[in-house]
Design a protein around this nucleic acid. Sequence first.
DNA 1: TAGTGAGTTGAAAGCGCTCTCAGCGGTCGA
DNA 2: TCGACCGCTGAGAGCGCTTTCAACTCACTA
Lengths: 341, 341
Amino acid sequence: MPASIQDVADRAKVSISTVSRVINRRNIVNEETRKRVESAIDELGYSPNVFARGLMLRRSHILGLVLPDLHGEFYSEVIRGANLRARELGYKLMISSVVSKDDGSELVATVADHALLDGLAVMISEVNTRIRDSLRQVKAPLVILDGDIEGAKHDSVVIDQRTGTVALLRHLVRECGARRIVFVGGAATNIDSIERLKAYQEVTREFGLEVRADDVHHLDYEYDTAYEFAFERVKKWARGRTAVFAANDEMAAGIIDAALAAGLSVPEDLAVVGFDDTRVASMTRPRLTTVRVPMSSMGAAAIDLLVQRFEEPKRPAAKLILQSELVVRESCGAGLAAGVH
Amino acid sequence: MPASIQDVADRAKVSISTVSRVINRRNIVNEETRKRVESAIDELGYSPNVFARGLMLRRSHILGLVLPDLHGEFYSEVIRGANLRARELGYKLMISSVVSKDDGSELVATVADHALLDGLAVMISEVNTRIRDSLRQVKAPLVILDGDIEGAKHDSVVIDQRTGTVALLRHLVRECGARRIVFVGGAATNIDSIERLKAYQEVTREFGLEVRADDVHHLDYEYDTAYEFAFERVKKWARGRTAVFAANDEMAAGIIDAALAAGLSVPEDLAVVGFDDTRVASMTRPRLTTVRVPMSSMGAAAIDLLVQRFEEPKRPAAKLILQSELVVRESCGAGLAAGVH
DNA sequence: TAGTGAGTTGAAAGCGCTCTCAGCGGTCGA
DNA sequence: TCGACCGCTGAGAGCGCTTTCAACTCACTA
């Protein structure tokens, strides 16, 4: 049984009130008394019971982070950013994931005992009403990553995918001479995919590019799926100045490998670009032209907003927009086209 | 202010004792009363206060996971495995990292309020006395991943790196015809590196392979470092039937790319193998022959041991050994050598 | 008729802490 | 000389819960 505040008080020959005062750094304690208490604390290796404290203060200094899935570099970086910042600010981080086909009940379970959590950051990747419903019930400070819940006021961190995507696609058309762009997205309900598709439609319209019926596809963000999917089509795609815009790097890698396996060369016969700028983007050959997303900054920003909210509960809901950024490598064939033009 | 047990009691016209009994599934409550209480709970959206409960029960159902660094796929997979298993068993996971050059005090800070944590899993990657010292003070159930603390009894999960490494290196010699193996490790104090180096020495001795003074190197597990390091040496290495054994996949990828950049071909001029079987291992060209490490199983196993410990506090310290496994791809040139032999 | 025990419930203690309030001795201005 | 105030400290209430203990009701048995 660890030492309690009473043990410390006994040893220092003071009341527990005084011990409490010493701990909470109220400098209203006599110098000498304070020293006596402090050494009693040291000798007993005392540290205040978190539960008793939480019960009184209604503050746990624990923040929750809920992600769609813990797989892959993207999430790992978000966690990393959040963890570091939480540490800096004196908070602890509790992590949880929501399995993909969740109806929201699991999320509620994670969140329900929000007496435990001072605040909660949730990353939303699916347009799923159930999840939104359950989130709306959360009373603790809430930060939504990458999405929005109407009807609930909360802070949010979003990535401006549009700017990056538009820059990427314009680059494809202007610098790389693409005349047709094929879109390969994640699930049709995936928020990021939807955003990227929107930007895709915007740019194709801007340049008057023809979008054929089978130029927009929805897969699942996986390498293997993209590989198989692409393997049957790359030859067709390769006729004409076609570029493939994959909504993440993994799929782009799969498509590149499918093209190479089919005897094509990238980017000469087919340009391929990705999204996220994860580790794989610099591992493919040719290396991927992609859009960099500030993953760890997202996590850190979420924590920042949460903590700010504690300090200033009345502040109007903030929406933090993080920029995405075009990263040009070889897979788009910019160098080539520059010669052609 | 969320509803308390008293609110529920009032609404159901019973005492708080009865509410408590209903919650804790003691079936000693009258059917009818129970229903009344349950609907009161529903109507108020009541959920018990974690702190009050923790104060009484001295159990939080929160487990801690401390990792050396949250960067990279390896750790991300450990977290994932741990998170999933914790969920299954009804526990929550608190994550923290220890910055690399820590003296252990940060770790203590993470751990100190162990009233909060029911148990703790710590991954150790450096032979660092300070960290060990602070870990020895932990009284809560402790599981050490990938290391050992003498003087403290605790459960541990280790990966049998030897078996996998030996299989890998024997494969290099027997199937790929390597006559010289260069070792490129992580930091000299890194536990995994040390283990892998031991196995390296064992196999070179077994086959009577000459190990020159500059055949063993210690870098930092990074792609870039390995690339630069290798770039100056690959031509020298390539004379003779040399293979490079990098202690992780990232470095192996850097070395492959350095070799290709220097105009060599892998594995014909130089065989390169890695360790971990992370995502990059299948992204390099040629793809990496490596050793698969059960990353997410490690995390899950740690949680299992922790929970078992609660149920059976007196059980002697267990050491769970997870196997590593040789994964043969193209970078070692097995196919080639088979032809040569 | 009283005693027994099962089934069910409530009163109250107490977990370890924070915080309000009152009380101590002493100094100071009126 | 007295009240006001200051610096410091302790008593005690109370946070929301679990759990012990006693009590009450209602068969059922001796």
